[in-house]
Nucleic acid binder design. Structure first.
Lengths: 129, 129
DNA sequence: AATTAATTTGAGAATAATTCTTATTCTTGC
DNA sequence: GCAAGAATAAGAATTATTCTCAAATTAATT
């Protein structure tokens, strides 16, 4: 993968954001700044950056994927009301992957652990249905 | 929610399947049988049934949602190669939700824990890239 | 700095998964 | 069996994402 100015813009944007932005938000944010990128380029680069570990992809239950520039080990909680993603420090866990591997015979390459709930803002706003 | 024959068909189909079918697979399966349902009805009912706990929704990282008629507590491992979902017995876990709740102040309503890996069939077939 | 080969980009079409709309058809209580 | 409310069919619409390919960028070489 050779250097590209657009990829650097995308990476910098996600790293600077503390909002775990979606592809669309990255696109809009760069456009609102002085950057001239296309949506396809944003998607392409987010995928590449997540693929090679520069970013983390956060797959939400419903709604678009989000991206996290903070790749240090931590977990996420997603508000089912507004979609916001909140960081959660990683708690000590038993070695679940080994257990899964032993039980299924699969080669386990990873694990996704996400919390769901109502964030403070939504609780305060009584937006929760 | 009043009774409906179509909803019963959908629920029975997912319960009988051991494949964690997608909405499309449920639709095709019912159509292949003698059932006359529309795709929208399959989606609507899968959503309702998952909502009220009769089924479990399995959100995969990429690809369509899958549904599980087995609602007893267990985990899932998803093959990143073929998309198949394999059941994993629930291992004892620390109370992660309380930890997340304490750290974020959110009302935590649930947690998703999914394993990713390569299933036996894909390993055997060397399909894994 | 020009040449070239490989890579990336832009713009919009295409795709995939799901939801919405509305007229019609069930379901249930009376 | 009728009325009121709920569910359905069919396909249009929406959302999120990927694909296509000609044009632009990058990096290595002259």
């Amino acid at each position: 993968m050779i250097y590209s100015k657009k990829r650097e813009l995308v990476l910098d944007y996600v790293r600077a954001a503390c909002t775990h932005p979606t592809a669309d938000e990255v696109y809009a944010g760069l456009r609102a700044g002085d950057a001239d990128v296309s949506l396809a380029t944003v998607y392409r680069n987010l995928n590449q950056l997540a693929e090679n570990g520069a970013l983390r992809r956060i797959t939400t239950l419903s709604g678009p994927d989000r991206f996290d520039g903070n790749i240090t080990p931590h977990l996420h909680a997603i508000c089912t009301c507004c979609g916001r993603v909140i960081d959660v420090p990683r708690a000590p866990l038993p070695d679940l992957c080994s257990i899964a591997s032993a039980h299924t015979g699969m080669v386990i390459t990873g694990m996704t652990l996400v919390f769901h709930g109502i964030c403070n803002a939504c609780s305060a706003n009584n937006k929760a249905h």
